[in-house]
Simulated assay, not measured.
Amino acid sequence: MAEKEKFQTGDDGSEFVKLRIDHVKSPQFRVIHVNQVLGGTNQFGDLCMTVLNDRPGIPDSYDLHWHSDGRQVIVDPDVFEDGNLVAVREVEAVLMMSLPVANLVMNWIKAHLEAYARAERQLAGQPAESGE
Protein backbone atom coordinates (compact mmCIF):
# COMPACT_ATOMS: atom_id res chain seq x y z
CA MET A 1 0.00 0.00 0.00
CA ALA A 2 1.27 3.49 -0.74
CA GLU A 3 2.22 5.60 2.26
CA LYS A 4 2.22 9.41 2.35
CA GLU A 5 4.68 11.24 4.52
CA LYS A 6 4.96 15.04 4.77
CA PHE A 7 8.39 16.54 5.18
CA GLN A 8 9.95 19.96 4.81
CA THR A 9 12.80 20.87 2.56
CA GLY A 10 14.52 23.97 1.30
CA ASP A 11 15.21 27.30 2.98
CA ASP A 12 11.69 28.56 2.45
CA GLY A 13 10.17 25.69 4.49
CA SER A 14 7.94 24.58 1.61
CA GLU A 15 6.24 21.22 2.12
CA PHE A 16 6.45 18.28 -0.19
CA VAL A 17 4.69 14.94 -0.02
CA LYS A 18 6.79 11.80 -0.16
CA LEU A 19 4.92 8.87 -1.69
CA ARG A 20 6.17 5.31 -1.26
CA ILE A 21 5.14 2.94 -4.05
CA ASP A 22 5.18 -0.83 -3.59
CA HIS A 23 5.49 -2.91 -6.76
CA VAL A 24 3.33 -6.02 -7.08
CA LYS A 25 3.96 -8.42 -9.96
CA SER A 26 0.91 -9.32 -11.99
CA PRO A 27 0.04 -13.04 -12.14
CA GLN A 28 0.68 -12.68 -15.90
CA PHE A 29 4.23 -11.31 -15.34
CA ARG A 30 6.84 -12.86 -17.61
CA VAL A 31 10.06 -11.97 -19.34
CA ILE A 32 9.55 -11.22 -23.03
CA HIS A 33 12.44 -11.77 -25.43
CA VAL A 34 12.17 -9.21 -28.22
CA ASN A 35 13.60 -9.73 -31.73
CA GLN A 36 11.31 -7.41 -33.67
CA VAL A 37 9.16 -4.36 -33.09
CA LEU A 38 6.23 -3.17 -35.20
CA GLY A 39 3.70 -0.44 -34.65
CA GLY A 40 2.83 3.19 -34.94
CA THR A 41 0.23 5.48 -33.44
CA ASN A 42 -3.45 4.94 -32.86
CA GLN A 43 -6.32 7.39 -33.39
CA PHE A 44 -5.80 8.81 -29.87
CA GLY A 45 -2.13 9.65 -30.47
CA ASP A 46 -0.80 6.79 -28.34
CA LEU A 47 2.26 4.92 -29.49
CA CYS A 48 1.46 1.26 -30.18
CA MET A 49 4.58 -0.91 -30.02
CA THR A 50 4.06 -4.58 -30.92
CA VAL A 51 6.93 -6.74 -29.68
CA LEU A 52 7.66 -10.04 -31.42
CA ASN A 53 10.16 -12.85 -31.04
CA ASP A 54 11.45 -15.46 -33.45
CA ARG A 55 12.10 -19.07 -32.56
CA PRO A 56 12.45 -22.38 -34.37
CA GLY A 57 9.33 -24.44 -34.92
CA ILE A 58 8.48 -27.16 -32.44
CA PRO A 59 7.11 -30.43 -33.83
CA ASP A 60 3.69 -31.55 -32.61
CA SER A 61 5.18 -34.92 -31.65
CA TYR A 62 8.12 -37.18 -32.39
CA ASP A 63 9.37 -40.69 -31.65
CA LEU A 64 12.46 -41.55 -29.63
CA HIS A 65 14.48 -44.63 -30.47
CA TRP A 66 16.50 -46.34 -27.75
CA HIS A 67 19.72 -48.18 -28.61
CA SER A 68 19.92 -51.75 -27.42
CA ASP A 69 22.66 -50.71 -24.95
CA GLY A 70 20.01 -48.56 -23.17
CA ARG A 71 22.30 -45.56 -22.83
CA GLN A 72 21.65 -43.45 -25.88
CA VAL A 73 18.48 -41.87 -27.23
CA ILE A 74 18.04 -40.98 -30.88
CA VAL A 75 15.39 -38.55 -32.07
CA ASP A 76 13.61 -39.80 -35.16
CA PRO A 77 15.32 -37.93 -38.03
CA ASP A 78 11.98 -37.51 -39.84
CA VAL A 79 10.97 -34.94 -37.22
CA PHE A 80 13.34 -32.47 -38.89
CA GLU A 81 11.94 -33.02 -42.37
CA ASP A 82 8.77 -31.96 -44.13
CA GLY A 83 8.89 -28.32 -43.04
CA ASN A 84 9.25 -28.95 -39.31
CA LEU A 85 12.26 -26.65 -39.18
CA VAL A 86 10.38 -23.44 -39.80
CA ALA A 87 10.79 -20.09 -38.14
CA VAL A 88 7.92 -19.05 -35.89
CA ARG A 89 7.35 -15.37 -35.16
CA GLU A 90 5.30 -14.92 -32.00
CA VAL A 91 3.46 -11.68 -31.28
CA GLU A 92 4.14 -11.37 -27.56
CA ALA A 93 2.45 -8.12 -26.56
CA VAL A 94 1.36 -4.68 -27.68
CA LEU A 95 2.67 -1.86 -25.51
CA MET A 96 0.40 1.20 -25.63
CA MET A 97 1.85 4.44 -24.31
CA SER A 98 1.24 8.17 -24.44
CA LEU A 99 3.83 10.42 -26.05
CA PRO A 100 5.21 11.59 -22.66
CA VAL A 101 5.64 7.96 -21.56
CA ALA A 102 7.18 7.03 -24.93
CA ASN A 103 9.73 9.81 -24.39
CA LEU A 104 10.48 8.46 -20.90
CA VAL A 105 11.02 4.99 -22.36
CA MET A 106 13.21 6.40 -25.13
CA ASN A 107 15.34 8.34 -22.63
CA TRP A 108 15.60 5.29 -20.36
CA ILE A 109 16.76 3.09 -23.25
CA LYS A 110 19.21 5.77 -24.45
CA ALA A 111 20.74 6.15 -20.97
CA HIS A 112 21.17 2.38 -20.61
CA LEU A 113 22.67 2.04 -24.09
CA GLU A 114 25.16 4.80 -23.28
CA ALA A 115 26.07 3.14 -19.97
CA TYR A 116 26.50 -0.18 -21.78
CA ALA A 117 28.78 1.44 -24.40
CA ARG A 118 30.88 3.07 -21.63
CA ALA A 119 31.24 -0.28 -19.85
CA GLU A 120 32.26 -1.99 -23.11
CA ARG A 121 34.91 0.68 -23.76
CA GLN A 122 36.20 0.35 -20.20
CA LEU A 123 36.41 -3.44 -20.48
CA ALA A 124 38.27 -3.07 -23.79
CA GLY A 125 40.71 -0.64 -22.15
CA GLN A 126 39.66 2.24 -24.37
CA PRO A 127 39.61 5.78 -23.03
CA ALA A 128 36.28 7.35 -22.14
CA GLU A 129 34.79 9.74 -24.66
CA SER A 130 35.09 13.43 -23.86
CA GLY A 131 32.28 14.65 -21.65
CA GLU A 132 32.04 11.37 -19.70
Rank of each mutant, 00 (worst) to 15 (best):
M97F: 02
V86R: 15
D54Q: 12
C48P: 00
T50E: 10
L52H: 02
G45S: 08
P127N: 03
R71H: 15
H67T: 11
L104H: 13
G39R: 02
A111V: 06
P59D: 04
G125L: 05
L95F: 07
M1N: 10
P77G: 07
C48D: 02
K110I: 10
Q72G: 05
A111G: 08
I109M: 11
D46T: 00
G45R: 01
N53I: 01
E90P: 00
V88A: 07
F16L: 15
V34D: 00
Q28I: 11
R20T: 15
M106E: 15
V101H: 08
N42T: 05
G70A: 01
L95Q: 03
Q43F: 11
P127W: 08
I58S: 10
Q43P: 06
D63N: 06
A124P: 05
D11M: 11
S26P: 03
Q72Y: 09
I74L: 11
P27V: 13
P100W: 09
V88H: 05
M97H: 04
V91P: 00
G70Q: 00
H112E: 15
L113N: 09
N103H: 08
V37S: 09
D63W: 06
L47D: 03
M1F: 05
L99Q: 13
P59F: 04
A93Q: 06
V24A: 10
R118K: 12
V17M: 15
Q122E: 15
A102H: 07
E120P: 01
A87L: 13
W66R: 06
H33K: 13
E90Y: 05
L95S: 03
E114M: 08
V51N: 00
H33M: 10
Y116P: 00
A117P: 00
S14T: 15
G131F: 07
K110G: 10
K4Y: 10
G70F: 05
P127E: 15
P100L: 03
D12Q: 10
A102I: 01
K6G: 01
V31P: 03
Q8I: 14
M97E: 04
H65E: 13
A128F: 13
F7T: 05
M96S: 06
L99V: 15
M97C: 12
D12R: 09
L99F: 08
G13A: 09
Q72C: 05
Q43D: 14
T50R: 09
P59M: 07
G13W: 04
S14I: 14
K18F: 14
M96A: 12
R89M: 04
